[in-house]
Simulated scan of single mutants.
Amino acid sequence: MDLLRAVPSLAAGPVVDLGCGNGAAAVALATFGRPLSGIDSSPAMLAEAKALGIYDSLHQADIGRWAPDGAPPALIFCNAVLHWLPDHATLIPRLAAMLAPGGTLAVQVPHQNNAPSHRLWLSLAEELFPGRIDPDQGPGVLRPAEYHRLLSPLGELSLWETEYYQQLDACEDGHPVRRFTETTYARPILAALDEGEQARLIAAYEGVMDKVYPAAPDGTVLFPFRRMFFTLTR
């Protein structure tokens, strides 16, 4: 919703929810009153999105290779998806070039890689299992200055970050931050290890999390999570 509120007045053309998932943004995007398409690579997610009955069309596609097959979009909306795709220096200008004149590319990506919650997965894995983990396999997000240099020549750019404080629920089977990160950021790291190695890494990670993100008496944890946003109007 913070990203949508930053979208300027739209040019003529449809709206594309690129990496739409299960349609979490569909209701809000439909308020623009434009033809709304959802693009995702997951058939399961697209089935959930279709059940909403909001999208005018849904397409299964590799979002890194997607291109519109109709009118140029007035808005390409990419919420929490592009960080899983490589080579932003090529990808994002290519998306911007698909826009209608005056159209907007709106992007939000997690920018948490340097926080202890994420960085320690890699540093502990390298300490325990040297050379086993590729540090470049995780989310690929450029520095803000790099996005600025890349995108400011392409149109009107607005770039910002926000740190959100989330209260994570207590977990009976581990630290809440570990449970939060292991199914997303840490997934490829853990996948490279066998079951015993995973247990060693998780134990080491848990020991640090207790100090970095201490739990309240009820077991909940206040967890700061940084996200980067930009809108680029062609």
Rank of each mutant, 00 (worst) to 15 (best):
M1G: 09
D2E: 15
L3T: 03
P8G: 11
P8H: 08
S9K: 08
L10R: 03
L10M: 06
P14I: 06
V16S: 05
D17F: 03
L18F: 01
G19I: 05
C20Y: 09
A26F: 02
V27K: 15
A30M: 01
T31L: 12
T31K: 13
L36D: 02
S37A: 15
G38V: 01
G38R: 03
I39S: 03
D40A: 08
S41I: 05
S41C: 00
S42L: 04
S42T: 04
S42R: 01
A47I: 06
A49W: 07
K50Y: 12
A51C: 00
L52E: 02
L52D: 04
L52I: 06
G53A: 09
G53C: 11
Y55N: 00
S57M: 09
L58Q: 09
Q60T: 10
D62H: 07
I63E: 06
G64V: 12
W66V: 02
D69L: 10
A71V: 12
A71Y: 07
P72K: 15
P73M: 03
L75Q: 11
L75S: 15
L75R: 10
F77K: 08
F77T: 02
F77A: 00
A80S: 07
V81M: 05
H83Q: 15
H83C: 03
W84G: 04
W84R: 14
W84Y: 13
A89H: 14
I92E: 02
P93E: 11
P93I: 14
R94P: 04
L95T: 10
L95N: 02
A96M: 08
A97F: 11
L99W: 01
G103T: 03
G103L: 02
L105W: 03
A106V: 00
H111D: 12
Q112I: 10
N113E: 14
N114K: 12
N114G: 12
A115Y: 04
A115K: 07
P116I: 06
R119C: 08
L120Y: 11
W121I: 07
L122S: 04
L124D: 09
A125I: 04
E126N: 15
E127Y: 00
E127W: 00
G131S: 08
G131E: 02
G131C: 07
I133N: 04
D134T: 11
D136C: 01
Q137G: 07
G140E: 06
G140N: 11
E146P: 01
Y147D: 06
H148E: 14
P153G: 10
P153Q: 13
P153I: 06
L154I: 03
L154N: 05
G155Q: 00
E156Q: 15
L159F: 05
L159A: 07
T162R: 15
Q166V: 11
Q166A: 13
L168T: 08
D169T: 13
E172M: 02
E172C: 01
G174E: 13
H175S: 01
F180P: 03
F180Q: 07
T181R: 05
E182A: 10
E182Y: 12
E182R: 14
T183E: 11
Y185M: 13
A186P: 01
P188Q: 13
A191D: 15
A192M: 05
L193G: 08
L193N: 03
E195V: 12
G196Q: 15
G196W: 10
G196M: 14
L201Q: 07
A203W: 05
E206G: 12
M209A: 12
K211A: 10
A216H: 14
P217N: 01
T220D: 06
F223Q: 07
P224W: 03
R226M: 10
R227K: 13
M228W: 09
F229R: 07
L232D: 02
